[in-house]
Design a protein around this nucleic acid. Structure first.
Lengths: 344, 344
DNA sequence: CTGTTAGCGCATTCAT
DNA sequence: ATGAATGCGCTAACAG
C-alpha cells in the first residue's frame, strides 16, 4: 500500500510551508529562484504528484474536459475523438468520455449531470446534428455555465460551433465531376435529418445551379449511410435516368455500394459512370476502382474543437464574454480513378 | 452564475445534519424511511448533485475508470472502447480516456501519472500486446496499487487479462477452409510482434498439423494489417505455390487486398481461391464476393474488461487478494461467399 | 437512527 | 519572498 505523498511531506522535507510548495507547482512568480529549484528537486525525489481532486475542490477548477461522442464504429467520429484527445492532452487536459447512442432527454441529462458533478471545465458535444434533437440539447446546456463547443451542426445563437464545411466539400466534389465532363449528375445523400447530409445536398444543389443544371429533384436519392443504400440508390437513379453518368455519393460506404451495383450492371467506372464519395476512409483507396472522395480531416476538427473550447475557457476567466462563433474545417478533394473520365 | 447546491443547503432545508444527507445519497441503511424519503424529495427539488471531487477527496475513492486506448481509427479498438464505455456507465463509472500512439516509456508514465493524480479506481489497458513493450508496461504498472485489466495480450503473472481467443478463431477459420475442400492453404498474418498475430498464426499451424499438413513455413506471409500487404502477400504466396487454393487472411483489410489481387489475376473466388478474413468489419459483407470472416465481438470484450475490473475493485475492498485470471471472448465464424467452394 | 468532530489535499487571502 | 489561517464539499469514526 503505497501511501500518497502530499504537499505536506514535501514542505516538511524542504523546511518551508505548504504554501510555498503550492506556489512552485502552480508556477507562481513569487518564489526565490533557488528555493524553487530546491523544492523542484525534492518533488521529483519524493515522486510527489499533486492530487487533482484536492486541487479541483479547493480551486473550483479542474483540468478535465467532458466529451460526448457518438458512433465510434465509424471512421469519422473515431478520428474526431482521436484529434480531441491528442490536442487535449497537449493542452494539459484530461478527457472524460461519454458515449450516447440514443439522443433522448434522459440520456442527455444523465451525461451532463455526470460532467457537472465531475466539474469538467468545458464540454465538447461531438454528436451529429439531428434536426429533431436541436432543441433538447440547446435547452439542457443553456443553464450550464460551462463552456461548450458543438461539433458538426448548424450554428446556434450564443454557442460555439466547430464543423467541417460540408457545403464547400459538396461544391468541390460536384464541380470536379462536371469539369471532368460528366453531364447527367445524380446525388445519393445521407438521411436528411442530419445536418451534414443537408449541407452536402445543399452544396450539390448550389453547384448544379451554378452550371445551369436546375430541376434536379428527381436526381436525388436519400440513403442511410450504409453500403446497401448505395446499391439501392444507384438502381433507383439509374432506372429513372438511363443517361445518368455521374453520382456524388455522400459517404464512402454508400460509394462502395454504388461501385458494386454499377459494376454488376456492366458499367465501367469512370468511363460510363463517375463517382465521388465523402470521408476518405482508408479502404476507399483500394476500391475497384480507387475512389475519388472528400477528406473531412476529422482529426483536425477534433483539435479545432479543443482549441475553440480552450479559448472559451480563457475568455471566461477574463470577462463574462462567451464569444459565440463558428470555426470551419475546409475539406480536401482526393482525386483518384473513379472520377477521372478525361484520363481514360 | 448558478451557485452550486451543497450538502449543507440540503441539510438546512431538511433540518437535519449533513451526515444524514450523506447517508441518504450513499444509500446507507441506517436512516429512517420517512426521513430518507423526505430528504430525497428535497434533493430533487433543490437539484442537488453531489460533488464528485469532494467525495473522492474525502473517501479516497472515485468512480472513475482510466482507459488507455490505441488506434481508434480501426474498427476493433473503436468497438472495444464503445463496449467499455457502455458497461462502465451502466456500472456507474465515469471513463477517463487516454490515447497513445507510441508505446515509449515517457508516454506510458505520463498516462499513468495522469490516472494516479485523478485517483482512478481502476485501469483498462486496451493496447495491443507488442512483444517489445511487455516489460515496460509490466514494470510501470507493478507498483501502482490500482487494479488493472490488460486487453488482448499474453497472460502475465499477477495480472488480469481479458482477450479474444484468437487461437481458437484461427482454428475455426482454418478448419472451415479445409472442410470446404481446399487443400493448399496459405496464411497472411499480421506483424508477428503483435500477440494477436502470433496467436492467429499459432492457431492456423495447430489446425494444419491436426489435418496432417506439416511443413507449412513457405506458406506463411507476414503482412502489416494494411490492404496493400494483402496484395503483396497474395502475389508472394501465389508465385511460390501456383497450386495455392485458399488463404486464411488475418484481418479484413488485407483480405480486401487479396480479393483484388486475385481477381486481377483472373482467379474466381471462391472457386479457385477460398478466403477467410478476421474482424468482420462492416464493409466485409459487401466485398466482391462477400467475405467469410471471424467476428471478434470487440464490444463484448470491452464489456468483459469492465466486468473483470469491477471484480478486482470489489475484491480489493474485501481482502487484499487480487485474483489474477484470464477472461476469454470466443470469436464467431461468419460464413459468406468467399469460402464456400462447395456451394458453387 | 441521528449528530458531532475531524480531516481528506490543496489553494486563497491575508499577513509579515 | 514566505507563512498562518481558513475553507472547498464531503465522508469516517465515533458518540449518543
Amino acid at each position: 500500500m503505497k501511501e500518497q505523498v502530499t504537499i505536506k511531506d514535501v514542505a516538511k522535507v524542504a523546511g518551508v510551508s505548504t504554501q510555498t510548495i503550492s506556489r512552485v507547482i502552480n508556477d507562481r512568480p513569487d518564489v526565490a529562484p533557488n528555493t524553487r529549484a530546491r523544492i523542484k528537486r525534492i518533488i521529483t525525489e519524493l515522486r510527489y504528484e499533486p492530487n487533482a481532486l484536492a486541487r479541483g475542490l479547493s480551486s473550483g477548477k479542474t483540468n478535465t474536459l467532458g466529451v460526448v461522442g457518438f458512433g465510434l464504429e465509424y471512421f469519422g467520429p473515431a478520428n474526431v475523438l482521436t484529434g480531441i484527445e491528442k490536442r487535449a492532452s497537449e493542452c494539459g487536459y484530461s478527457v472524460l468520455l461519454a458515449l450516447i447512442d440514443q439522443l433522448d432527454e434522459r440520456n442527455i441529462q444523465q451525461v451532463l449531470t455526470r460532467f457537472v458533478t465531475q466539474h469538467v471545465i468545458g464540454i465538447i458535444w461531438a454528436i451529429p446534428g439531428f434536426s429533431d434533437s436541436m432543441s433538447i440539447v440547446e435547452q439542457e446546456t443553456r443553464e450550464l455555465n460551462i463552456p461548450i463547443v458543438l461539433l458538426n451542426r448548424s450554428t446556434l445563437p450564443q454557442k460555439v460551433v466547430a464543423a467541417v464545411d460540408n457545403r464547400t466539400g459538396a461544391n468541390i466534389a460536384t464541380q470536379h465531376l462536371i469539369e471532368e465532363g460528366y453531364e447527367h449528375l445524380g446525388i445519393i445523400c445521407g438521411p436528411l435529418n442530419w445536418w451534414e447530409a443537408q449541407e452536402r445536398l445543399a452544396g450539390w444543389r448550389e453547384t448544379m445551379k451554378a452550371y445551369n443544371k436546375e430541376d434536379t429533384d428527381s436526381w436525388i436519392f436519400e440513403g442511410d449511410w450504409g453500403v446497401e443504400s448505395g446499391e439501392f440508390g444507384f438502381h433507383a437513379l439509374y432506372s429513372a435516368h438511363p443517361n445518368l453518368d455521374a453520382i456524388f455519393v455522400c459517404n464512402d460506404q454508400m460509394s462502395l455500394g454504388v461501385i458494386q451495383a454499377a459494376s454488376r450492371k456492366g458499367l465501367i467506372i469512370p468511363k460510363d459512370l463517375g463517382i465521388v464519395g465523402f470521408d476518405n476512409i482508408p479502404e476507399s483507396r483500394f476500391f475497384l476502382p480507387p475512389l475519388t472522395t472528400i477528406d473531412q480531416r476529422a482529426r483536425e476538427l477534433g483539435a479545432l474543437a479543443v482549441q475553440s473550447l480552450n479559448e472559451c475557457i480563457q475568455a471566461k476567466g477574463n470577462e463574462e464574454q462567451n464569444v459565440p462563433s463558428a470555426n470551419w474545417i475546409h475539406p480536401d478533394l482526393i482525386i483518384r480513378e473513379s472520377s477521372q473520365r478525361l484520363r481514360v
